[in-house]
């Protein structure tokens, strides 16, 4: 399995939760509840889900700024989990993360150029000439004028800020980048150019990428494989084409049916009705999705389904995936 660069097994992250001297203790939320996935060298793996599904926490845990409470992370077969935060970051130096909110991810008091250079300084790339050369190359690679370095974050457009945050991370020559909603908040035309840039850079630098997004259209366009998350769990993982053309898990089907597509005259009532998602603090017993699932039976309430192989390269976490009739999702 030299094919796998990053291997995550049974990862679990608890968020919040406070023991207080006075007053009631707040129980933590299991934001990531036993996720296993293998990132293959050079692929773009999409992680998709609705807000609160734990996709961002998964990214932050893999990065190491959020400590896992259980599970193992292996980088090139070497265990890099179970460490305190700073050591975890040092061990996972090959993994870098690009924040969703590019404007907020830069210190407003620092010029963009200084922020970029700082990334190199922190990581001990010492000589000034070398830093400047690397930054110059990287700015050119992300399509920014070197003169932009003197400006401050609030003076840049959304698209430019994305490029800056991307450059700040890529200049460190990581092998894995985690992109968290890389185009959220961008206009359609800017989104297109940023996505193209991401695709080109990932290919050129031969990077492996965990692509976190809620936008199914974007994921379909960008990713090789896609994992669908629901309440901290991966419910289905398959090659992009396979997943979009023949979704297996009931939640995947609902999600695909609900996503807006560029086809006029859709029947808004074709997709199955769904209630409100349960709160992450009160996850249903057994299968987390069962309260909104059209196919739920007794066993779904008592036993949590495991992520099991379901045909070529697909894994799915559902007791009844074999029995549910083929997806009625409209293909386009």
């Amino acid at each position: 399995m030299s094919d796998v660069i990053l291997d995550v097994e049974g990862l679990e992250t608890l968020l919040g939760g406070e023991r207080r001297l006075l007053g009631a203790a707040r129980p933590p939320v299991r934001a990531v509840a036993g996720v296993s996935l293998a990132l293959r060298r050079g692929e773009i793996l999409g992680v998709v889900g609705e807000s609160g599904c734990g996709k961002t926490t998964l990214g932050r845990t893999i990065l190491g700024i959020q400590r896992e409470s259980a599970g193992t992370i292996r980088l090139d077969g070497r265990v890099v989990s179970g460490l305190p935060p700073r050591e975890a970051r040092r061990a996972r130096h090959d993994v870098q993360y690009v924040h969703q909110d590019a404007a907020a991810a830069l210190d407003p008091w620092w010029s963009v150029g200084r922020s970029l250079e700082e990334a190199l300084l922190i990581n001990g790339i010492g000589r000034r000439a070398e830093r400047e050369a690397r930054l110059g190359r990287m700015l050119a690679a992300v399509g920014l004028e070197p003169a932009l370095g003197r400006r401050y974050p609030h003076e840049l457009s959304g698209g430019q800020l994305r490029r800056v945050t991307l450059a700040r991370v890529l200049v460190l020559a990581p092998r894995i980048v985690i992109l968290d909603e890389p185009t959220s908040g961008l206009d359609l035309s800017v989104q297109a150019t940023v996505l193209r840039l991401v695709r080109e850079l990932l290919g050129e630098l031969r990077l492996t990428c965990l692509f976190i997004s809620h936008d199914l259209s974007v994921v379909r366009q960008m990713c090789d494989r896609v994992a669908i998350m629901y309440l901290g769990r991966i419910v289905e993982l398959a090659a992009t084409r396979q997943l979009f053309e023949a979704p297996v898990h009931p939640y995947t089907r609902v999600l695909l049916a609900a996503a807006p597509r560029l086809v006029a005259g859709q029947d808004l009532h074709a997709a199955p009705i769904l209630g409100e998602p349960p709160s992450p603090t009160a996850v249903p017993s057994g299968c987390a999705f069962r309260t909104r699932c059209l196919h739920a039976v007794d066993v779904c309430a008592t036993r949590e389904p495991a992520l099991e192989p379901a045909g070529a390269g697909r894994t799915v976490s559902c007791h009844r995936w074999r029995e549910i009739p083929a997806a009625p999702v409209t293909a386009d």
Binding site: S189, Q191, A192, T193, L195, R220, Q221, M222, L262, V263
Partner: peptide, 27 residues
């Protein structure tokens, strides 16, 4: 409008949508 956009802006903008974009050219 979705199937037969006429204005160059509409045409380019729709071509930026990830459902349609093949080369993600942008505007």
């Amino acid at each position: 409008i979705l199937e037969r956009p006429r204005h160059p802006y509409t045409q380019l903008l729709l071509a930026c949508h990830p459902d349609r974009a093949q080369d993600l050219a942008g505007i």
